[in-house]
Design a protein around this nucleic acid. Structure first.
Lengths: 189, 189, 189, 189
DNA sequence: TATGAATGAGCCTTCATTCAT
DNA sequence: GATGAATGAAGGCTCATTCAT
């Protein structure tokens, strides 16, 4: 039967359902047909909101990216956090985001795509927000390593994988970050 | 025309051709038809040797993994290398392997959770071989960090991504490794 | 936003817009959606006025046909034209009409055998109007050919195609008509 | 059940079935699915032989064109025919070809296509073959009209339409051709 | 009158897989 | 061992049409 909804609501509904299925089965193995069926909606409706599967994938990824972006921005903006707490908070959020979407992270719409992997997108966002924080740390002589940006990237990506592979202990995390960025031992604990 | 070959030879031939095509176009976009055509062989023959595309993909990945495994084993076994050179050699090989197969690394056959990504397989192998080397370093007090295995993993995966993203300078590499493992500055240069 | 208009006005508006789009992109490639969008009107409204796309197509064709019909009728009715001028004027108009609507002429709605092609419709109209003129010519012994109606049809259709294919020179035209109808050479120039 | 046939045979079979369906329902309304079903064959098989619907359409058209081409070439080559008989024979064949394929003639694969209409293709072929014959006629002073090529085109296209519209009497035909090309009355009868 | 979200049938195409030879 | 014609399920997408508001 026919159920009409507010377009924006429906749009979100589609994005969310798609995100869940992408999560569960991977993007490639999730067909528009299945998304529609899950929503109890005609296939055509999905195309009414997204002109192609790629566009839907993009929307899903964008949504995830933006939620991370917003969260991190908020953290960076907080006045009550010092350099270390801020760093810790950011990483926590980032790892959490990565861990939540392993399948989406793995396969992209048309692999050779522009920003193909959400992974890149997320790490880019994390990188962007940590950047300022790091610079601040350098001015306070809290950061003394060479190639800080590369080190950051190693951390972001490397720790991401570690996280996915089951290392969730925040203490271990803190230690690893400290060591990688050559921070005072225990400063993040 | 019909060409008969030694089964093992033919098997290898198929694996190699598949590997090249996977490399060039990605696994998903490489069809059995194309592999067969490239080999000037009937489609059915591929199925004679591999009962499914997935099995072929697996064989290709296994082959890549084993070649890395062999290479690293050889390095570890060499007597003429000290701790630092050995470390450097191992990382070089690993990065090289990763860089050589970006497409295969990106998309997995049917994302069978098993060992889904060659990436995991490769990093696992690298991890395995570096393990002994690291232990050795710890005995010599050359490695003093905590959670050395996690740090190694961060390095292996994190540096891997960095490598893929265009950072190829060996000197930078060396510095990053030194910093991550907290080695004597300059020891790998 | 909602704009209410006089039904007949709206109907014309739809026909005109449809005609333009059919002209520009061909009937098949023009969707109801696009027609509605161009009119800044909801899709449903088009269906309020025309129960199907075919009916709209029919209306568009009918309109074109009638405008040609009116124009030719006017020419035939003029007292100030002699046989030759009248003939010339009619053909000019007909060719002009054909040339103006190449896309519509090429593809028909659902090829409903009915009067499938506007082409047939137009040539029929032209034929109808020339008929009287020809009869007149015969009475004056200006037309001596056999099967004048068939010859006329050949002219109308054949010249039509020639026109579409780029032969626009009125002089050449005149000569061709003279020859086909076996008129006095130069009488139409 | 599975029925294997000689590739060339199967290819022809597909072309013929497609031609018939195109004939009956028009190209656009004939789906690959229907062609396959009519042949009692899987849809995929059609794609095994023709990589797209357009390619199949092209093959069908090409086949029709070539059969006309061959037939006309043969007529032109015959020694036993004089100018008039040859002309008559050619037109007969051409008209016959056109009449046999009204639907195919009407709609082309992707209308705006290269040689879009078989009509053009056929008339071009006819034109090509008649060309020599006409030249010959001019040398013998049997043809005295101006713009003979244009006149020929008018004949070919115009008479084609007439034919489709039900005028089949060879005598009438002959007279019309005589008049259009300004030949000796009765020379083609 | 007018809206536009929703439908659903159908289209073209791809491709892993099978099987008679 | 090898061939390649044949299968069939599935996928992405389009669009005329409907209907609740």
């Amino acid at each position: 039967m026919r159920v009409t909804k507010d377009p924006e609501t429906r749009r979100q509904e589609i994005i969310e359902t798609a995100a869940e299925l992408f999560e569960k089965k991977g993007i490639r193995k999730t067909s528009i047909t299945e998304i529609a069926k899950t929503l109890c909606v005609a296939k055509g409706l999905v195309y009414y909101y997204f002109s192609s599967k790629d566009e839907l994938v993009t929307a899903v990824i964008e949504q995830l990216a933006q939620s991370l972006d917003a969260a991190l921005a908020e953290i960076v903006a907080r006045d009550d956090l010092d350099f270390y707490s801020r760093l810790k908070a950011i990483f926590n959020f980032y790892f959490h985001a990565i861990q939540s979407h392993p399948r989406v992270l793995t396969v992209s719409p048309n692999d050779p795509a522009a920003f193909s992997l959400l992974r890149d997108r997320l790490s880019h966002i994390a990188f962007y927000h940590v950047h300022d924080v790091l610079n601040n740390g350098m001015k306070q002589n809290l950061i003394t390593i060479k190639h800080p940006q590369h080190m950051l990237r190693i951390l972001i990506n490397g720790l991401g994988d570690l996280y996915i592979n089951g290392v969730h202990d925040p203490k271990v995390h803190a230690t690893l970050i400290e060591q990688t960025l050559n921070l005072e031992p225990g400063c993040l604990t």
